[in-house]
Computed example of a mutant assay.
Amino acid sequence: MVDALARLMEEGRFTRCIDTADQMLRQGGWSPVQMAAIHLISCRCRLQLQDVQGAVEAGQAAVRLAQQEGQYDLLGRALLNLGTAHAALQQYDQALRCFFDYFTHMPHYQEARRLEGAVWKHLGVTYQRRLEPEKAAYALEEAQRWFAVRQIDHGAFTSRHDLINVYLYMSAADRSKLVAVRRLLFRQQEIARRYPTEPYYTGTYLLDVSAWLLRSGRPVLAAVAASEALAVWPDDPVHAFHCHLVLHHCALARESPRLALGHVLAACSAAVAAADPQLERLATEILGDLVEREGVAILRELGRSPVDSVLAEKVTLPPPLRRNLQ
């Protein structure tokens, strides 16, 4: 029965899988190891449906039962997913504790050893969100190295993408990081060329190139690369969101606030399409900053004559959009 539950998850029938798991737990009669497996499957499905609080509760139950029964492979998987859920809730200390606990039990793993690269990656992203770039860079270097040695292209590519973002952040204080990014981009290009029919790789590579060019002080070339990235993979709203943000910064660097406004509004639309409240919040904040800083210039570019009394007031923006995700 637990195997049938796992198949529902693998088929992407996440809501059905959660309902079935809840029903199985209510009926009872399962061993502690089976209950741990059921809770873990529920945790993973809830993460897919962005029910992060529910994922934390299921993940905690899976960790507790797996640890109690000495089922270390099950424990390793549960710790990774529980840490991911905590990070999604911005509970970074709890997330780090889960990832560290994974490494603590490493000598006992068999199958769970294959999760090491993913744990390094999630550890790095968590440090990145905590604005600890040195620790983030170390963990992501370990992640990309782990995947590269095993020729797991997707893991290596995504880890390097995150590492590029960290190095670009660090380049504000240390320009030498731009050289490191350039080296990483060559390796990303190699992987993207191996998958010419999959737009994720080429689109993400071009987006990273555009961000590097922008940081290097070349906004015109950055805008070209970002536009190509958007053209390669236009159907993914999260990707489109980030492309429009880069294009917004390019437009500001070229002193075109009206064009920048257009890209911020497009980013807002992409965030809504992605059904991602965090992206919506970020887009709203950027829109507020842009209107506050460049409102006069935008109105002038639109050919309107602003009234002094209007300009004296701060524009009030609506709160981030919300929706019923059901």
Rank of each mutant, 00 (worst) to 15 (best):
Y72Q: 08
D19C: 00
H244D: 04
P219D: 09
G217F: 12
L245A: 02
V179A: 12
A95Y: 04
A173W: 07
E190F: 08
A222Q: 06
E198D: 15
Q110I: 05
S176G: 15
Y201R: 08
R254P: 03
A118H: 05
R130L: 15
R322F: 00
A21G: 15
Q50P: 02
R16T: 13
I41S: 01
D101Y: 05
A251T: 03
C250Q: 09
C43P: 02
Q48N: 12
Y92M: 07
R193N: 05
C45Y: 00
A211Y: 06
R293S: 14
C45L: 13
R113T: 09
L47H: 00
V52A: 04
F186R: 10
E301W: 07
I298V: 12
V209A: 06
Y92D: 08
L96C: 11
M170I: 11
A223S: 15
A225R: 03
D174A: 10
E280C: 12
S171H: 03
A118C: 01
I191K: 05
L321C: 07
H39T: 03
W212L: 02
L49S: 13
E57V: 01
L89C: 13
V63H: 01
R218M: 11
S269Y: 05
V166S: 03
V238I: 11
A148I: 05
G288K: 02
D93F: 06
Q27E: 14
G288I: 07
A270D: 05
D73L: 03
A312P: 03
T20I: 03
F103Q: 09
D174P: 00
E301G: 12
Q189R: 14
G295V: 11
L96S: 08
V315Y: 06
L287W: 04
S309E: 15
N324L: 14
Y201F: 14
I298F: 08
R46I: 00
L321S: 12
E57R: 08
P257R: 09
A137C: 00
A229I: 01
Q67M: 08
R64M: 12
L311D: 03
T84G: 08
A223L: 09
G54C: 07
D73W: 03
G295T: 13
E280T: 03
D162K: 04
L168H: 06
V33P: 04
S216Y: 15
A273L: 12
A62K: 01
W30E: 12
K121Q: 15
R183T: 10
P107M: 13
D101G: 05
Y195V: 08
Q53P: 02
L261K: 03
H154L: 10
V310Y: 08
L321D: 06
R218W: 04
A66L: 07
L282V: 05
A251F: 11
A143T: 02
R215G: 00
T158V: 15
P107K: 11
V56Q: 00
R187N: 10
P318H: 08
A4E: 14
H263Q: 05
R175E: 14
L317N: 07
R113E: 14
M35N: 10
C45W: 02
P318R: 10
P219C: 11
A192N: 03
I152F: 04
T204I: 10
Q27H: 13
P237C: 11
Q60R: 12
L247Y: 06
E69H: 06
D3L: 15
